[in-house]
């Protein structure tokens, strides 16, 4: 998609530069060239750019490109880390987009709503002051906006298989898990996802 976006943008740019430099008369040929340079190729490029951008925003490297997320990315990529996030990040099926895979809400509108929530992160980073914060201050003061929903875990760990149902803790806590009163990623269960960003009493 990136190559298509750049290729069509390059063709459109050549057509527009040709018009700006040569200043041709407005004949039918000029109109067609301008139609290609101002509408057809830019439209194709916009579609490809959007598809590429939407995919790019699901990559863990993208999430980790803001300095307050660097430790999250480092932990995710650390083969020695035992954190829940890192164990998921090592999964070859989705490790490269582990942040998005786990944090995207599960519903028909999960994809666009997750992207909209991501815009609030961008706002907080560039206009809300996070950009000038130290990592220590960020880890101390910022917590997830709402409790992590178990439904997100159950996108993959559906609970339908015997290997899930046979665990007595899962059976005993079934109602609490369903109502999100107990988190899969809590200290007594599978552990906090990003351990390094929590105070000792939160672990």
């Amino acid at each position: 998609m990136g190559a298509l976006a750049l290729g069509t943008a390059a063709v459109a740019a050549v057509l527009l530069l040709h018009h700006l430099v040569m200043r041709p008369r407005l004949t039918m040929g000029t109109r067609i060239r301008l139609l290609l340079g101002l509408a057809v190729f830019p439209f194709l490029s916009a579609v490809a750019t959007t598809a590429h951008g939407m995919h790019r925003t699901t990559e863990a490297e993208f999430c980790g490109s803001c300095h307050v997320m660097t430790t999250h990315l480092t932990d995710l990529e650390d083969p020695e880390s035992k954190s829940l996030a890192s164990r998921h990040g090592r999964n070859p099926m989705f490790g490269g987009s582990a942040c998005y895979t786990c944090h995207a809400d599960y519903s028909m509108l999960g994809y666009p709503l997750t992207k909209l929530k991501g815009m609030s992160h961008v706002y907080n980073y560039y206009l809300g002051g996070y950009r000038s914060w130290s990592l220590e201050k960020f880890h101390e003061e910022v917590r997830i906006a709402k409790p992590f929903p178990n439904a997100n875990c159950q996108q993959c760990h559906s609970g339908a298989l015997a290997s899930f149902r046979d665990v007595k803790e899962h059976r005993a806590m079934a109602e609490e898990l369903k109502a999100n009163r107990v988190s899969c990623a809590s200290a007594g269960c599978h552990g906090v996802a990003h351990t390094f960003s929590k105070r000792p009493e939160e672990l």
Binding site: L6, A9, L16, H19, L34, G37, S45, T49, H52
Partner: peptide, 17 residues
Amino acid sequence: ACVLGLVTLGIMAAGVV
């Protein structure tokens, strides 16, 4: 329109690259 189009293409290319 041509200048705006070039600005548009530049921003889109920067987003990809």
